[in-house]
Amino acid sequence: MNQVTLEIPYEIPVDAHNPVEPFLRMDRMPHIWCPGCGIGTTVNCFTRALLDSKANLDKVAVVSGIGCTGRVAGYANLDSFHTTHGRALPFATGLKLANPELQVVVYSGDGDLFAIGGNHFIHAARRNMDLKVICVNNLTYAMTGGQTAPTTPDHVISATSPYGVFEPSFNLVALAEAAGASYVARWTTYHVKQLSRSMEEVLSKKGFCFIEVLSPCPTLYQRRNKMGDGLDAMKFYKQVSKIRHGAPTSECALTKSGEIVVGKFVDRDRPDYLELLRGQMTESLGDRYAEPEVSCSC
């Protein structure tokens, strides 16, 4: 990559580098995301959260499904897994249980996590599996050309709803709370500081944590709906978002052009899967219970 910079009226220190670069596989840049897509912005927030959390990056794994956001795993310079469509969560479940010292982050899109992977989402949340889920919600299936997703709002035009969506959509934060998530927040790609802080917060929280990030898709969502480009989406987020920490998630449903309630909605402590497992086995088996040593040298 050419490090060409335009003429600037001051000196840049020679050792200056973009703080995201150590977290990314820079030999894979440029990435595949469209101009004005917000996925890269969420990645910035994630890398800064990792930096601020002082996590041991050798012990952080990223698991993605399929789709535009599914490509995050391929760009993260961590142990990273690009799995099958919808199955990032069960893959991550196996990874975490085999190697509990790993911090396992599931980074995927709304179609992947909530349509084809919806069943896995509610069960991983129910079990309070110690996974951090970052869902980039662009309200559509972007990789495949802008089809209707379970998150696409009413009246939106999509490739498979040419006359407008009429199916009710999911309210992801309400779904996550109802299924048992320990932590539920929503931000948009406009809220970079808050998003980064939320991500940092979940990196030190046990249990199933869910962060929804609304993100522009100018190419496949907005174009069909005359909603402008990525920057227009960002301005829209700025204009209509209301920060309401602790808001009842049932009141946080999204519409095509209405208010976007953002904030941290749920932050509760529930024993996670491994704690529950250990508790039950100890109660039933006493000294006969052997601590899992799933990962072996053989």
């Binding site: 479940t93 196996g94 085999a98």
Partner: peptide, 13 residues
């Protein structure tokens, strides 16, 4: 797929 996550975590599964 959970078994494959476990394998990459070091398990035989």
């Amino acid at each position: 797929i959970a078994i494959q996550g476990a394998v990459w975590g070091g398990a035989k599964a």
